[in-house]
Every structure is written in structure tokens, then in C-alpha cells.
Design a binder for these strands. Structure first.
Lengths: 236, 236
DNA sequence: CCAAAAGTGTTCTAGTTACACCCATGA
DNA sequence: TCATGGGTGTAACTAGAACACTTTTGG
């Protein structure tokens, strides 16, 4: 088959912004780059797109290589393509952000890549334009989590309302009234109260909840304002 | 300088979903593809990214080539990269959507590319995965316009409230109460009432408004629901 | 028994909706 | 003068915000 003539071909990489939450603060999974340039410097996990794979596929592969996890929440974020963003050779980077339960991450695997979790507000310097990518991911997450039930991806299957609140408070760097917060969350009908409690973080113990999966899928839409009844009109 | 070895390089294209509104319905600007494969079939305006340009730059260049317009609203949408989306050769497509005042579009320029406006709900078949791109752009626009003052990009500098309402009603395929609609729009404080009227579409005439540019920039944020006072926390 | 965290209700306010008539004008 | 589209106000309702005390239990 003919090719398009007279055009320049470039490398396409996928970079993953992998976010977790440890109950205290948001964490970002970084690796120490194993090859030049910027060897030993901290970097997002990434890789080149292979000939027979699509972009989502590449992102999933890269994520699995690093964490051993499949079926992680993964969403395409933005594509970065300044001509000299990688000094070695022109590389267009398609970024994805991932949300995962930090406890599922298997520590030993990280050794292969010298991977480490860093608090989002206390990170080392990153190579290239990776810091801009992280910034963008943070903004997207704040934006999206305000509208869609999304942050559960960061928690284990069973979680408590106080945990959930800490998650939101961490993301927005604010404190919310727990009465209003709980009411609002529960009013979505997305949660199923369990009969057992988490006694880890208090003497009284907090009831566990699970997501109602079927409702989760259907209620992914949102609540907006510029038009009347906007939720009728929005696709996720 | 060394290159990364053992990796495949691919073409990177930028495709633009160019939207306009003619007072009646939303329109999409398509071109008749001038080269094989799929020659003569309808397609989004696109082009390959050149060695010394970034992605946004490429999108702006492509848009200007087709319309002669600069400073058009342009936003990166999504990157498509299935291995065989272009049967000739692997091409990763970074899509942008553009909103422009359809009246500014200079018809004669379109001749070079056999460009034509098509109603969004009555389009010819498109090549490759371009239809999926258009769908995604529609969804993004619905989503975003519900939260941000964005649709003004489709109108001339001076516009009337009934025009604005038609714009929203067209996008959401719904009708809104004009009293409530006007109140809500005006309450944003984004509009400056002019002293002259548009007499084109009615005998009485409708007052023109202009955007208050300074407020437009500052009020780009939104109004949400999952957290209290979400507008405090959102970057556009 | 007490410190620490979980859980729960009510009032007030602001925003959203529903709804119907008068106005200005050109033909 | 009348048909057409532009413009306006109010009342009822709903959702969001502010606010403080009681419960449980491990140490």
C-alpha cells in the first residue's frame, strides 16, 4: 500500500499520571528514569506506542507494567506536542490519568522501575513538561469530581463516609460540613450501607458503604446550571 | 544528538471540527478530500503536523488555511490512535474543535478546498473515524456550554437575547422559558445592553448586547453541585 | 469516665421553576 | 388594525448552607 509522501513521522508516547490517596493526602506514582537523557531523574511512567496497539491500549499496558493492575480507571487527558519538549527527538505525548486504590498497588513491582509515591504537594522536579501534565491532571480531577462520582476509584471496595469526606477535602483543600456532605452524598442513592464497621480510625467505628454498581453507571451524569435541568442533556 | 532506538515513528495529524450557527441550526464545515484514499469523500479539515510547529499551532494554521480566520476559539478535544484508523498508514489524529461566527467565514476561500457547511443533524458520510470525532465534539460542547459562557463564540460581536436563546435551544434540542432564560443569562453580569436594536427578525426589534470582556474572562468558571461552593475550586 | 470520632435534624435563604399578559412595529 | 416577536413580574417550591448536640467505645 502507498504511504503519504513528504511528511515527517514522529514518536508517539503515552504518559500516565497515576494518582492514589492514602487517607491523608493525594499521591502521585513516579519512576526514576532508567535511560538517557535525564537518567535517574523522576518522571511519569510512560512508553512508546507500539505498532499494533491503540492509545488506550498502550496506556493500559504501561499501567499494568508498572503496577500489575488491570481495570484501573483511566482517562485520556491531553496531548502534548511542542516540537522540542523532548530534547532527544520529537515526541508527541498522549497523557492519561489513572485513579487507583493505593493499597492494591504491589510494592515489590515498583522495584523494577524504582517507582515511588510522592505527595502531590511535595514532589521532586520532573523531566520535560511532566509537571505541566500533572497540573493539568489535578485540574481535571477537581473539575470532574465536582460533577461526577469518580473519587471512589481511589478507595477500596468498602469505605466509610469519613474516608470519603477526607478524599473530597483533600482534593479541594477545604473542609466541608459533615452533615451536609453526608446528606448530599447519600441523596445520590449510589451507596449501600453495610452492616459492619471500620474500627481502625475511631473507637465508635464508622459504617462501611459500597457503591451500588448499577446506579453508579447510570448516575455518572451530573448537575449543572447554565440551562434548566441540565442533567437531562449531558453525556459524561 | 542520539535518537531513541528501536521505536516506530508515525504520522501525526490535526483534525478540526469547525462549528458554526446560522440562526437556525448548528453547522459543521467539511471539505471534499482532494487526495486518495477516499478522494472526493467528505472529511474534516486536517493536516499533518509539521516539524517545527506545536499542536495548537498546527490547528490554528489549518483553520486559517481553510477559513482565513485567526483568533478563533479552538480547544483540543481528544486524540485518536487506533492502529488502522487510516488504512494507508498509521496516523495519530489530534482533534480540535473550533467555534466561529459563521458570518465571518469567507465563502470564496472555501472553493480551494471544496468546503461546505452541513447541518449537524444532516451530514454526509465522513471518512475514517471522523464521525466519531464529530460526536465527541458535540458532547463536549453540550457539556461545556452548560457550565461556561462559551457559545458567544458562535455569534457576532453584537447579538440579541432571542438569538442567544436560539443558540442554546439548538444545542440542547429543547425549548426554554424566555423569562427564566433571560433572567439567568443577565444575572451573570456578562452582558452589556446596547442602545440599538436588531430589526432583522421582528418588527419590534430586539436590543443588542455585547459581552463584557473583562468579566467574560473572570467568570469563565462554573456552577456545580457535588461540593459546596464548587465555583471556588474550579479552573476552567 | 473521658477523649475522640461518628452520627443526626432544623431553620433560613437563595435559586429555580412555572406561568400570562402587554408592548412596539411594519405591513 | 392586526399579526409577529420582544419584553417583563410574581408566587410556589426546592435545594443548599449554616449550625450543635448526642452516641459509642477503647483506653
Amino acid at each position: 500500500m502507498m504511504k503519504y509522501s513528504g511528511q515527517t513521522r514522529v514518536l508517539v508516547a503515552v504518559d500516565c499520571i497515576i494518582l492514589g490517596f492514602d487517607g491523608e493526602s493525594y499521591k502521585l506514582l513516579l519512576i526514576q528514569r532508567g535511560f538517557a537523557p535525564e537518567k535517574k531523574k523522576w518522571s511519569l511512567m510512560g512508553g512508546f506506542v507500539q505498532p499494533q496497539e491503540g492509545l488506550d491500549e498502550a496506556a493500559n499496558r504501561i499501567l499494568e507494567e508498572l503496577t500489575g493492575l488491570k481495570n484501573v480507571y483511566l482517562e485520556q487527558l491531553h496531548t502534548f506536542g511542542s516540537p522540542h519538549r523532548d530534547p532527544v527527538e520529537r515526541t508527541v505525548a498522549v497523557t492519561y490519568f489513572a485513579l487507583l486504590d493505593i493499597q492494591k498497588y504491589e510494592k515489590q513491582l515498583s522495584q523494577d522501575y524504582h517507582a515511588e509515591w510522592f505527595p502531590l504537594n511535595d514532589m521532586p522536579e520532573l523531566i520535560f513538561d511532566h509537571m505541566a501534565m500533572v497540573e493539568m491532571a489535578k485540574n481535571r480531577l477537581r473539575y470532574k469530581a465536582a460533577l461526577h462520582p469518580l473519587l471512589f476509584e481511589l478507595l477500596p471496595e468498602k469505605f466509610t463516609l469519613p474516608q470519603l469526606q477526607a478524599l473530597y477535602e483533600g482534593l479541594y483543600e477545604a473542609t466541608f460540613d459533615k452533615r451536609n456532605f453526608n446528606r448530599k452524598l447519600l441523596s445520590t442513592g449510589l451507596f449501600v450501607k453495610q452492616h459492619d464497621k471500620d474500627k481502625e480510625s475511631s473507637k465508635k467505628g464508622a459504617f462501611f458503604y459500597k457503591l451500588d454498581q448499577s446506579k453508579y453507571i447510570n448516575n455518572f451524569q451530573a448537575f449543572l446550571k447554565f440551562i434548566p435541568n441540565p442533567e437531562k442533556f449531558l453525556a459524561p
